[in-house]
Amino acid sequence: GGHPVTTQMVETVQNLAPNLHPEQIRYSLENTGSVEETVERYLRGDEFSFPP
């Protein structure tokens, strides 16, 4: 991942996926670069990993 992630982006995802840890959200956003894509992954039931 190398996309810039803002606190705003993390908070937006958190509102839609409250049971995800912020670190999981941030890591996913760094890989996708997209709030929409991260939320899609969540709704699909994809696994969210923590940063290594």
Rank of each mutant, 00 (worst) to 15 (best):
A17Y: 09
V10M: 14
Y27E: 04
H21K: 10
G33H: 08
L20R: 00
V39R: 03
G33E: 04
S34P: 01
L20T: 01
T7P: 14
P51S: 05
R44Q: 07
E11H: 10
E30V: 08
Q14S: 10
P52S: 09
E37D: 09
T32S: 07
S34G: 04
E30I: 09
R26N: 03
D46V: 09
S49A: 15
L20M: 06
Q8N: 10
E36L: 11
E40S: 13
F50Q: 03
M9Y: 02
E36R: 11
P18Q: 08
L29K: 00
S49I: 14
T12P: 00
V35S: 02
V10Y: 06
F50K: 02
Q24Y: 02
L16I: 14
V39Q: 04
Q8Y: 12
V39W: 09
E23W: 11
E47T: 13
E11L: 14
P51A: 06
G33S: 05
S49F: 13
P52V: 08
V5Y: 12
G1M: 13
T32L: 05
Q24W: 04
H21C: 11
S34Y: 01
Y27K: 04
H3R: 12
A17Q: 02
P18M: 07
H21R: 09
Q14T: 07
T32K: 00
G2T: 13
E37P: 00
R26L: 08
S49D: 14
L20F: 03
N15P: 06
Y27V: 06
N19E: 13
R44S: 07
I25C: 04
A17S: 04
F50N: 03
F48V: 02
T32G: 07
T6L: 06
T7M: 14
H3L: 10
P51Q: 04
V5E: 03
V5C: 05
E11W: 11
G45C: 05
P51N: 05
N31A: 14
Q8C: 11
T12A: 15
V35I: 13
G45R: 02
S49N: 11
L16G: 03
P4Y: 15
E47D: 12
R44D: 04
T32F: 05
P51G: 08
Y27H: 09
G33P: 02
E30D: 06
L43M: 12
E47R: 09
P4L: 14
T12N: 10
F50W: 15
V10S: 02
T12F: 15
Q24P: 01
R44M: 08
V13W: 01
G33Q: 07
E23A: 14
T38H: 00
E36F: 11
P51K: 05
T12V: 12
S34C: 05
L29W: 02
T12L: 15
Q8F: 12
G2H: 13
T32W: 06
E30Q: 13
H3Y: 15
H3N: 10
Y42M: 03
D46K: 07
P18W: 09
E40R: 15
P18I: 08
R41K: 11
S49V: 14
M9R: 03
V35A: 06
T12D: 11
Y42N: 00
L43H: 09
P52F: 09
H21W: 07
E23V: 08
